[in-house]
Design a protein around this nucleic acid. Sequence first.
DNA 1: CCGCTCATGTAACTGGTTACATGATTTA
DNA 2: TAAATCATGTAACCAGTTACATGAGCGG
Lengths: 186, 186
Amino acid sequence: MALSDLEQAVLGLVYQHAPCTAYAIRTLCAKSRTARFSGSAGSIYPLMLRLEQRGYLRSKPARQGRRRRRDYGLTRKGSVALRRWLTLPLPAADVSLVYDPLRTRMLFQRALPRASTLAFVLDALTKLRAAWPLLEQDCRDHPRSQNEFLHYAARNALLLAQARIAWLEEVAAAIERPTRRRRRGK
Amino acid sequence: MALSDLEQAVLGLVYQHAPCTAYAIRTLCAKSRTARFSGSAGSIYPLMLRLEQRGYLRSKPARQGRRRRRDYGLTRKGSVALRRWLTLPLPAADVSLVYDPLRTRMLFQRALPRASTLAFVLDALTKLRAAWPLLEQDCRDHPRSQNEFLHYAARNALLLAQARIAWLEEVAAAIERPTRRRRRGK
DNA sequence: CCGCTCATGTAACTGGTTACATGATTTA
DNA sequence: TAAATCATGTAACCAGTTACATGAGCGG
């Protein structure tokens, strides 16, 4: 009866924002740049009903002005489950490597002419550099003084972006540089 | 009729290793540290049959010694699809951020006492440092001279690991350091 | 009053997963 | 001769997705 990744994340989000609606959780997932879930209605609503049935969440009908809504919070069991999840050490394989779609593509670039690979690298570089100020902003939006861990999470995203930019620059330089096979004077 | 991530990856792997069996593709997925797919029989065999039916792969029965096997290769259509995939620019959102399970957990650490968070960080740090020499070895195993792109992919994994180690060290230092609220002389 | 946001849900699908099943060949 | 590896496949399941459907309240 282990909880799925999304279920665990929802527990965490409810912990942070309770009392809150399923809709709020949904939009948190959808808007956060760093989340990997779409926050679609089709995932969140059934999931939160399920978590309530199993005793991890409790909810009560409420109203925002005249608008009906359902407010969720963690039960004791829910917050225990959250802490257990956070405490449980991650398997070494999960920790030691992050998945990067750019890496996957790089793997097969030999199938393309050099110019196309260079275009691919430069395109990715442009997009990453465009995202950079947003990630910096995230760091500023979550100052250590408020919730230090949100700050650390934002720092993680920033440092990873930095590393990927450095990587792409390294690759671009290597590709642009004349290869050994290229004859002198050409 | 877009191809899934796994289908595209299989196209790439067949490109690199043809002629090869579905089993070989399977074990490549399973053994590679950098792959995100399990390479289970239940995914690979139906997938490759499907790709052949759709004209991306071709296969012929063969034998390794006395052992029966089926060798796959790319068709023209398959290699065109592979190059199209590699050429198509990635959506900015996919490029600009990688998913990191450590970041997700960091997000909710406020639910834990400081000592537990520190333990979590140090555990992750230990595991990442243990993986480091393996990633370095991958770089050496794929020298630029053989297939430069495999080398770049290995470099990506190494640089990302480096960034995450630096991040964890930063966080560990911040957590170990006495907080502002802590009274002098305590 | 029109369009946007808040709010809750369902149905069909998809892209994988694990577990099961089988059998030949090689190696210790 | 037992265990590991090569090799191919199926069945049941699962988590999350898209798309659809509905309706209230709020701002311009």
